[in-house]
Design a protein around this nucleic acid. Structure first.
Lengths: 135, 135
DNA sequence: GTGACCTTAACGACGCGTAATTGTGG
DNA sequence: GCCACAATTACGCGTCGTTAAGGTCA
């Protein structure tokens, strides 16, 4: 079950606390407040993933800026919404560009289609020229 | 200078506090923390607009949810970003739709252009039919 | 001169982080 | 049996809101 990268929960609380630069007890508080949700071993010990560590560091940054934990939680939620929205916006703009390119291409293709038909027209004139009187 | 609607700063601090449901002194704290920025009269008194009142109510909601003032400030900023981004996303999607409609129309117009030219082609055959042998 | 505004300071309540205590699992 | 983890409790510090005191303008 290896190779899961940053999702793999490997750090015990003491190591996670050291990596995040906080007291282990603080991590337990964060969990109680719903700010992190580390995995648990069968015995009940917490295991923190790299993602958890990143989140802990983000929490640290925000609390250092003076936010309390309720604020940290909301801010993290809002930031997630923001990145999601930015992605959607990028995609929407790419689709606009694609639609515009497709518009140009479609016209070009249409022209080309007629031009391709126009080539044999000279022959068509030879073929149908006499029948032109036909109603 | 009337008719400015919600931007017009009309409420003194006691009324604003009552409208927002907080202590007047609390409003002064909010201002010191940069959460609101009411207008001032020549004499130095604060004057709150309807927009200010809305903002005060929003601050109240967030603090009631347990955020401290630093968190309230950040959350309000992020929410502003979110609404801005949502607007941009709506616009981008509208532009995509417009570009796609324009793509369809452009092809249609191109077709129509050829069809208009194709009508006289029968006459052209009559006119040029004999010349078809010309190299 | 009274009243509402201004500012600054003091008080009480609460949230957060740390440390101490006790229990439990590897 | 030892060490690290778990959970609960207690303490210190800072923030927030209220209240109080003193000054200024209408």
């Amino acid at each position: 079950v290896t190779g899961e990268g940053r999702n793999r929960a490997v750090f015990v609380i003491s190591v996670a606390a050291e990596l995040a630069g906080v007291h282990p007890q603080t991590l337990r508080i964060y969990e109680r407040k719903g700010l992190v949700d580390p995995a648990r071993t069968g015995g009940g010990s917490r295991r923190y993933s790299e993602q958890d560590i990143d989140r802990l560091r983000r929490i640290q940054d925000l609390t250092t800026e003076g936010l309390n934990l309720a604020g940290v939680k909301r801010v993290i939620e809002l930031e997630a919404e923001l990145t999601e929205l930015r992605g959607a916006l990028d995609q929407a703009r790419a689709e606009t560009e694609a639609a515009r390119a497709e518009a140009r291409d479609a016209v070009t293709r249409t022209h080309r289609g007629y031009r391709r038909e126009l080539v044999p027209l000279r022959q068509a004139i030879e073929v149908f020229g006499n029948k032109s009187g036909r109603r």
